[in-house]
Amino acid sequence: MKRIKMGCTTLSIPAMALGIMRMNQKSVPEAQVAIQAAYDAGINFIDSADIYGGGKSEEIFGQAFSQMQIKREEMFIQSKTGIVPGKRYDFSKEHILHSVDEILERMQLDYLDSLVLHRPDALMDPEEVAEAFDQLQAAGKVRFFGVSNFDTAQFKLLQSCLSQRLMFNQLQFSLKHTGMIDFGMHMNMVDKPSVDRDSQFLDYACLHKVTVQAWSPFQYGMFEGTFIDNDGFPKLNQELQKLADKYEVGKNAIAAAWILRHPANIQMLVGSMNPQHIRDSAKGAKIRLTRQEWYDLYLDAGNYLP
């Protein structure tokens, strides 16, 4: 498994993480098979969130992992908080501290390697968040911190009040969700792709050594479904298959390789609980697409160059 530097540190993390959003749909033995498949492929990074499966995903993970032979210190375990489903986003100190205690209990852990704030809270008080982070770190409950779906200004605002460096920003990025790179190639144009919807965060991340974590790497829209083997995307799947045959892997590996080819050292989140899909996706970390192959996939995904 390809390894990358975590944020501004010298710590090494895998270029892929296993997202456990769908683990609530699995039995404990099935969850163990998925975790083991990821671990055997070099993916020793787990990404979760307190809302996944209403907390059930973390419960299943906790039960499964506690019975496995993998040592805790061999895994990097991350969870997210801040969404109260259907009610509000909540970055209050009280909510953050309470959520972490519940996460640790569900996952049967003494600490999280990383805590990520899930979606921007309009009522965020950066100084209150800083108090929560300081307390969690001092208590040994969280080692590192990050955010998810933050634009550059939101990221900089929060960072200005923290004593810790934010290591991550989790953002949607895939062959069918390319906004973070479209506008740069359409600079000075007036077409739709020229609109910057992400406040140039990818460039900011490169400049300031923030690890971007790409979620929904095989999805189109927002959880509308996968583009892999989808009849609605024939040109893209034809190109994916062509390259899969060349590199002797599956289509998932090629779609993953496309993300990891970007020089920002992106970490990709694999959300599948299918051991075969996990293993195939992991093979993408060993593939370095040529520039033309990368652009061919970009164009066949429905994009165009000015």
Rank of each mutant, 00 (worst) to 15 (best):
R3D: 13
M6R: 10
T9L: 13
A15N: 08
G19N: 04
N24G: 03
Q25M: 03
S27W: 05
S27T: 13
I35S: 01
I35G: 01
N44C: 10
D47E: 12
I51T: 15
Y52M: 00
G55K: 00
K56L: 03
E59A: 03
A64Y: 09
Q67R: 11
E73C: 08
M75K: 11
I83C: 00
V84P: 02
P85H: 09
K87V: 13
F91A: 03
F91W: 12
L104S: 13
R119H: 11
P120V: 08
A122M: 07
M124R: 11
E128V: 02
V129Y: 04
V129L: 02
A139D: 12
V142A: 09
V147E: 15
D151K: 07
Q154N: 07
C161A: 10
C161Q: 14
S163Y: 02
F168N: 15
N169D: 13
Q170D: 13
L175D: 14
I181F: 11
D196M: 01
D203V: 05
A205M: 12
L207E: 11
L207F: 08
V210H: 10
V210N: 05
Q213S: 06
N237S: 04
N237T: 00
K251L: 02
I254H: 03
A256V: 15
A264F: 02
N265Y: 11
I278T: 03
T290I: 11
T290P: 13
R291I: 10
W294H: 09
Y298L: 00
L299G: 14
G302Q: 06
G302W: 10
N303I: 08
L305P: 11
